[in-house]
Write a protein that binds this DNA or RNA. Structure first.
Length: 474
RNA sequence: GCUCCGAUGGUGUAGCACGGCCAAGCAUUCCGGCCUUUCGAGCCGAUGACUCGGGUUCAAAUCCCGGUCGGAGCACCA
């Protein structure tokens, strides 16, 4: 159904230097589940692997024991799976510590790494002046000895580190002799206190990108400098350097994404969980009724530009609406209902399509007895002037008279305001909105017990879930 | 401050690597009209952009230089 649409434009650009298949990766840190920003890197990588064939590696980067949420190891793959991202291989960095140690030892022997026993303030000052720390010229033997001491737990946090030799005259001070390993004695959720010497991201990423055979790396421009740092690793070891591409930042307006903020909010009871619909997590967006295809289409549409941009909920919603509309059944919802009499003398019958473009789905029909009131949105009622005529959608025409309506027979006036209503016996429902507010009211009987995305006419698309509603978008 | 990146309508993009086919395409929003017993969908129409200044050239959104603005990095985080 969705596939039939003609998406003539909006294709991702070709990658450079593709020789046959590609190997790509996404590398989240396990601090929490994925949010909409992460979905971009996941989908972009997935798209290219689909196009060229090859492997898509999920590499969980958990070399900083202080920034790990154990739940994330499961939540991340779940989110990716829901997004339709096809991971062919999963790697967890904390299970590869020996690999990093072995390569480090090799590099120490070759003189590419040295052990620093100096406080970081001084080290940083020296780097700013392009001056070598005295340890830089120590022999490989001395360094290997110290490395063993480092591994044995001889040093405490901050007392020593392993440094990658680069170029002390590099114009960017942070590229000069960067830290390759540091000590962190916090317990690791997966490995406990087995290790205390952890590689920094620039070291482990380089090693893994090489060992896993990455051909292309696409990542955000925040990694531009890291790419430069990592190239020193590749050059020192004579490894083949992957193709890099850096895309610009997308700022996502009006959306709570920061893991630390969310975590704090969950803890304090402000948010109900990772899927609280006020959040920008994949789980929350799923709960509201966004479709995975919408994410994919949006990110392909917005491409891989290096300039920064703003995420457009407008466009995202429009894409999603196109996907869901065909399957969204129509129902009436009356917010803040008031009971209003129609003063009809005979029975009235309503006749409304379940989906205006799909008559085969049938109709929603209700009978309104004489003297029986209906539910009507109070706000709309208050706005109506005395004697003004409106059409109760799919039911009849009425005019306002005091606190009641007066029934009038059909007329030919096509320009009447049309307003939804609900029959007596409708269920109560609460609709939770992303801004944190809740709309409560009545939903027509035929909708009761339904789950999934529906369109509440003149109100918006809502995901129904166990007799509650979660607002999707207009 | 230093290093590095970027700049097309309200928003998101196409085009720029090989200057002319671009008095700039598409999507979305807004506005108007049609259709319609939804403020959804559909149809028609309208408004709206190449950051600025120089240069090269017969010709520049596309190449060069400078300014401006925006962003990223300057961690023993990723």
């Amino acid at each position: 159904m969705i596939r039939e649409k003609k998406d003539e434009k909006h294709e991702l650009p070709e990658l450079e230097n593709v020789a046959g298949k590609v190997v790509m990766r996404m590398a989240p840190s396990p601090s929490g589940p994925l949010h909409i920003g992460h979905s971009r890197m996941a989908i972009l990588n997935d798209e290219y692997v689909r196009r060229y064939g090859g492997e898509l590696i999920l590499r969980i980067e958990d070399t900083n024991p202080e920034n790990i949420d154990i739940e994330a190891y499961d939540l991340i793959p779940q989110d990716l799976n829901w997004l339709g991202v096809h991971v062919t291989k999963k790697v967890i960095q904390s299970s590869r510590m020996d690999i990093y140690y072995n390569i480090a030892r090799e590099m120490i022997r070759k003189g590419f790494l040295y052990i620093l026993e100096k406080d970081q303030e001084l080290f940083r000052e020296l780097k700013l002046k392009s001056i070598a720390a005295e340890e830089r010229s120590y022999s490989p033997e001395t360094n290997e000895e110290k490395f063993d001491r480092l591994l044995s737990g001889y040093y405490d946090e901050g007392e020593a580190a392993v440094v990658m030799k680069t170029d002390l005259n590099h114009p960017n001070p942070s590229v000069r002799d960067w830290i390759a390993f540091r000590i962190n004695t916090s317990p690791h959720p997966l490995t406990g206190s087995k290790y205390s010497l952890y590689p920094t991201m620039n070291f482990s990423v380089s090693v893994d990108d090489h060992l896993l055979g990455l051909t292309h790396v696409i990542r955000g421009i925040d990694h531009l400098v890291n790419t430069e740092k990592q190239k020193y690793m590749f050059e020192a070891n004579k490894w083949k350097i992957p193709e890099y591409f850096h895309y610009g930042f997308i700022s996502i307006p009006d959306t709570i994404l920061k893991t630390s903020v969310i975590k704090q909010g969950i803890k304090s009871g402000k948010y109900s969980g990772w899927d609280d619909i006020r959040l920008g997590t994949i789980m929350a967006l799923k709960k509201r009724g966004y479709r995975p295809e919408a994410f994919r289409k949006y990110w392909i549409n917005s491409g891989m530009r290096e300039s920064n941009a703003t995420f457009s909920w407008e466009i995202f919603n429009s894409i999603n609406r196109e996907i869901i509309d065909y399957d969204a059944k129509r129902f009436f919802f009356v917010k803040d209902p008031v009971e209003i009499k129609l003063n009809n003398t005979g029975k009235l019958k309503s006749h409304a399509a379940i989906h205006p473009e799909r008559p085969e789905l049938g109709y929603r029909e209700y009978e309104i007895n004489p003297d029986s009131p209906i539910y009507f949105p109070s706000e709309e009622f208050d706005k109506l002037g005395e004697n003004s005529t409106v059409r109760l959608k799919d039911l009849c025409i009425v005019f306002k008279s005091g606190n009641e309506f007066k029934y009038v027979p059909e007329n030919n006036d096509k320009k009447l305001k049309i307003i939804q209503w609900c029959p007596l016996g409708s269920d109560n429902i609460e609709i939770y909105k992303p801004d944190g507010t809740v709309d409560s009211g009545k939903i027509e009987p035929l909708a009761s017990g339904k789950n999934g995305v529906v369109q509440l006419e003149r109100y918006g698309y809502v995901n129904l879930l166990n007799n509650r509603g979660f607002y999707l978008h207009r």
